[in-house]
Design a protein around this nucleic acid. Structure first.
Lengths: 263, 263
DNA sequence: TTGTGTGAAACGATTCACAGCT
DNA sequence: AGCTGTGAATCGTTTCACACAA
């Protein structure tokens, strides 16, 4: 999961729970697919299946938006598409800049999913002068020097950071100073930003680590108390030693092998 | 946030809460940085700041792993790095395949964050025969025909899907049939998989939509009851009309403009 | 004295189960 | 008869606040 930064504490009585907001895009996608197949109505059961959630949750989610269904019938697809779009703010145009046009930045620039939903890539920005002017996704890459100007002239309020970790904090500061108030961060760093700025983080390696945790559990279960552990990385074995100097220490729940991971 | 699929219901008394698991990689990264600067110990306060969480949460999280700190002092960095790595299963080697070598797949293949943490890209797989043999990230792309063989020969249990949406479900079925039990899905589709298989989803456009929601709120607040809405997309205006046929209907909490979004 | 470890309280999200509308 | 909308019960997560160990 991408980790969100603290939001306004949902004081406003009309507040939609954060967990619900995070699912609206999911419903929207399922509804859009139905709409394309010209399906006029769906039941909460059907739509929930398409979105991969259970129907009680979906109905509760929709209840925060208002009463958009018809008892005994279901939801009108087109109407619901519009209501959710409006709630998410997708009925307006969001110009976005992508900073850091490496492999990932280029992938993002080419990603069709943005353009199709109210987002418009207003500019691609990179710090490498050699990149300047080169076309990526049919658009010339611009140099970081012009970042502030680009943000202001295009009225950009959402920035995407796809730079190396080292540059991310500084880039975020420049974006924010120029007027950006929402950031999607792909760099593996914790950004520190002023209040009022939203940051969401997408971290590829964190997702894999979470999978590894569950994967490890499965392996451990399949073979009860058996050995079953896969090959240990060379680095982990090589770099043994390090352990706190102090004396008695409760062992971890699963043994206490001294070693250190690569990094 | 990436959306996780249902996991085993944490019955096992020794179960670590899912929310905690999701933060361990964050702590690990912060600790690794400290380790590189040869910092010997950290307090929960310092580490929490570095990881972007509050210290009570961090201490509670660590308490699920065991008692690895020293009262009055803090945590031993190296020791904690090892304990968390072990808990996450990163002391073993995880071969991973990436299926779908487009822009995003190539970006993932080149992403250094994998290799550095127990993950090894075992193979790159693509359905396009023209890609076969081409080197990406120093590795020849292999054809989908050999998918099963590759999975088996390398003992791969984690697969990354970076194909177009249309191909994702079928790819996931082949991966699973060949022995994969964890999938990281970048395609914008809900995968349906058998019990026992973990799926995590990363969806770029969903993250942006969540940001747009909050961004919209900010705009609405700044200008009280003023107009303040940005330019409406041409498509949204063009495609008015559609609305459920039925009569009386409670209006949504925020008006009831008839229109439909692009898609 | 300092900072961990943890019960207990507060909060938020999910699920249940059914009243009520169509 | 069928399916939504929603209070109430449940479950998981976060925060509080302080006893206790170094």
């Amino acid at each position: 999961m991408a980790t969100g930064r603290t939001h306004r504490p949902a004081t406003r009585s009309r507040g939609i729970p954060e967990a619900t907001v995070a699912r609206l895009p999911l419903y929207l996608r399922a509804l859009t697919a139905l709409s394309e197949r010209s399906v006029p109505t769906v039941s909460s059961e059907e739509l929930a299946a398409a979105a991969g959630v259970n129907s009680a949750k979906l109905r509760k989610d929709f209840s925060y938006l208002g009463s958009y269904g018809t008892r005994g019938v279901g939801y009108d697809v087109e109407y619901l598409v519009y209501q959710i779009s409006r709630e998410l703010g997708l009925t307006q145009d969001w110009p976005v800049v992508i900073v850091g046009i490496g492999n990932l930045g280029a992938a993002l620039a080419n990603y069709g999913g943005f353009a199709s939903r109210g987002f418009r890539v207003a500019a691609l920005i990179d710090a490498d002068p050699a990149m300047a002017g080169k076309p990526v996704a049919g658009m010339p890459v611009q140099h970081t020097d012009d970042l502030e100007k680009i943000i202001r002239e295009n009225g950009v309020s959402i920035g995407v950071i796809a730079t190396p970790a080292g540059a991310a904090q500084q880039v975020s500061e420049r974006l924010i100073a120029a007027g950006v108030t929402s950031i999607l961060n792909f760099a593996p760093t914790v950004l520190s930003v002023p209040d009022g700025v939203d940051v969401r983080k997408v971290d590829l390696s964190i997702e894999l680590q979470i999978l590894a945790f569950h994967e490890q559990r499965k392996a451990g279960e399949d073979s009860a108390a058996a050995p079953a552990v896969g090959a240990v990385t060379a680095a982990a074995v090589a770099d043994a030693a390090a352990r706190p100097a102090s004396g008695a220490r409760k062992p971890g729940p699963e043994g206490d092998v001294p070693a250190v991971m690569p990094a």
